[in-house]
């Protein structure tokens, strides 16, 4: 009896520890990158449409040489070689999660603008990085196709159109020329204010040790 009482604390401790250890040894390790945004948060953001940047705004920022813009081309390297916007970097969609791009995608200095030919690839990429909790990523509305259509080859509005249609046309034409030919033309287009770049507390490297 005395023997049993003496053994008891050890067994009392050992048995649960052993069982927990056995279970944990059999469970696969948690290697998933935790999603930072819930489905509900995502839905709200998508509905608000705040991730979209219009070609007009983008043209305005480019013409004014806004330094905080980072264009990201999500098409294949071949497509990128053929044509891309000035100063855009190429992150092919299939390569999005490669560690070499984390510093570009997860940052609080620049405003990233994703584009592809249409908006599908840009939107897919945006959904992924947004769920990872990365801020400051946006999508070029309509993609390259719409960019070419509206900025590089704008169609003149009909004579019966309201005045602001003409103003927009003039701006686009000017911007298109500026982007194509290089003669800078200050736009007086009242564009929507640029979204603020979200600063976030620096992720601290773990500290410790004696």
């Amino acid at each position: 009896m005395k023997e049993l009482l003496q053994l008891k604390p050890r067994l009392l401790f050992s048995i649960p520890i052993f069982i927990t250890g056995l279970v944990l040894a059999l469970v696969p390790e948690n290697t998933t990158q935790p999603y930072k945004l819930s489905a509900q948060d995502m839905l709200l953001e998508i509905q608000s449409g705040s991730e979209m940047v219009t070609p007009d705004d983008l043209a305005d920022w480019i013409v004014n040489k806004d330094p905080s813009i980072q264009l990201i081309d999500l098409r294949t390297p071949e497509e990128y070689e053929q044509y891309h916007l000035d100063n855009a970097i190429n992150i092919p969609l299939h390569d999005l999660l490669s560690p070499e791009w984390v510093d570009y995608l997860d940052q609080d200095v620049k405003m990233n603008i994703f584009y592809s030919n249409g908006i599908t690839r840009a939107h897919e990429a945006w959904m992924i990085v947004r769920q990872l909790g990365y801020d400051n990523n946006y999508i070029l509305q309509g993609g390259l196709n719409y960019w070419v259509e509206t900025i590089l080859n704008p169609t003149a509005p009909k004579n019966s159109s309201p005045d602001d249609e003409f103003a927009r046309y003039d701006f686009r034409k000017g911007a298109g020329q500026a982007l194509g030919a290089g003669s800078i033309q200050k736009s007086n287009n009242t564009s929507t204010p640029k979204p603020k770049i979200k600063r976030r507390p620096r992720k601290k490297a773990p500290e410790g040790g004696c």
């Binding site: 520890i17 052993f18 944990l24 469970v27 390790e29």
Partner: peptide, 14 residues
């Protein structure tokens, strides 16, 4: 895996 290592350490400790 970390789980298996912990299990080994548990066995050794017991």
């Amino acid at each position: 895996s970390q789980g298996f290592l912990v299990f080994l350490v548990i066995c050794a400790a017991l």
